[in-house]
């Protein structure tokens, strides 16, 4: 982050680490992982077979990849003070488009398939952006429209069936490997690096944060907030499309009804766990990614410990409430006064 270069007096270093945005999410992740280390050391085993790594940790990263892409886009949208509920539907649309292109043999080149599917996702995202900026509709409602209609559109493309296909190049996206790791991990890392470059090496990130924290003041300082918002929704659409392509390629079929179902909620959850406030303003992509990994580690931990799948949702909901409470000023105040009262009575 930018603050790295500022020299900090020695005694303040500890508190600087503690107040760093990454501290609490990483601490939570470390807690989860050490729980696994104690109860099931084989959790950390990584095998190398046929040039590919296998293991629970790799599996976590691989499964987290689609939500990670969604969450990266969602972080930007939330930072501008918005929200995007339609990402799950955009995933379905992108998947359906690619499956339709392949199974109807419209185009055969991998790059064209990617370009067209992502182009459609971009249009879907820009549609959201148009509603939010030009019509001034609340983001939660504007994106609700595409959330409802998007799945219908995706089903229209696939004609209501699960479109299966086989395409050697396209199957690599979800099933391929690069440097021994699933290709999806590399896709996430590249997207993250690209986003970081665009946002932190240019003023764009600052613009987004300023729009989120005070839209009127940003307008007066000359930031073209509508253009920035419009593009951010477009970027979120493309990220969602990419996530949809990974999932579609992984199962070699487009299931318009179920692909990415509820993943918008997972993405929002990851952003919140990462500490980016839903009200907009300051954001951090790295903590969002940690949030995604926490959620997936939680799910995998529940599964590997033999707890039935159905407990995942209950644990997730408890985690959300605890994280939100820890972020609430009122709750911190209450805990603090409780703690102080306890000290006084001793």
């Amino acid at each position: 982050m930018i603050t790295d270069s500022i020299s900090v007096p020695r005694e303040d270093r500890l508190s600087a680490i503690r107040t760093s945005k990454l501290f609490w999410p990483l601490a939570a992740l470390a807690l989860l992982l050490s729980f696994n280390l104690i109860t099931d050391p084989s959790f950390f085993a990584i095998e190398y077979k046929n040039g590919v790594f296998f293991g629970s940790l790799i599996d976590i990263l691989n499964r987290a990849a689609p939500v990670a892409l969604l969450a990266l886009g969602m972080t930007l949208v939330i930072a501008t003070g918005g929200i995007d509920l339609s990402v799950g539907s955009i995933m379905a649309i992108a998947g359906a488009t690619s499956a339709w292109l392949i199974s109807h043999e419209v185009v055969n080149s991998l790059w064209l398939i990617l370009a067209i599917s992502l182009g459609v996702s971009l249009l879907a995202g820009l549609w959201n952006g148009l509603l939010v900026t030009a019509l001034g509709i609340q983001p939660i409602i504007a994106t609700l429209i595409l959330m409802v209609a998007g799945r219908g559109i995706a089903q229209l493309i696939t004609n209501g069936q699960v479109l299966t296909f086989s395409h050697e190049g396209f199957e690599m996206i979800g099933g391929g490997a690069f440097l021994g790791l699933p290709l999806s991990i590399s896709i996430v890392i590249c997207s993250y690096a690209l986003a970081l470059l665009l946002l932190r090496k240019t003023a764009l990130g600052l613009f987004i944060e300023s729009i989120g924290s005070n839209p009127i003041a940003s307008h007066y300082t000359g930031i073209r907030s509508n253009l920035v918002k419009f593009s951010v929704y477009g970027v979120c659409g493309v990220a969602a499309g990419l996530a949809g392509l990974i999932l579609t390629s992984d199962i070699q079929g487009a299931d318009a009804n179920n692909v990415g179902l509820w993943s918008e909620l997972d993405a929002i959850l990851a952003v919140v766990i990462g500490g980016t406030a839903l009200t907009g303003g300051r954001f951090s992509l790295s903590t969002t990614l940690v949030g995604v990994v926490i959620l997936q580690t939680l799910t995998t931990t529940i599964l590997t410990h033999g707890l039935p799948v159905q407990y995942t949702l209950i644990v997730k909901s408890a985690v959300v409430i605890i994280v939100m409470l820890l972020m609430s000023a009122e709750f911190r105040h209450q805990m603090k006064s409780l703690f102080q009262r306890g000290q006084r009575s001793e």
């Binding site: 929200i83 959850l269 839903l278 408890a318 959300v320 409430i321 939100m324 000023a329």
Partner: peptide
């Protein structure tokens, strides 16, 4: 605790 309704009811 002034939590956003969206997140609480999502949980």
């Amino acid at each position: 605790y002034d939590l956003p309704p969206f997140i609480v009811t999502l949980a």
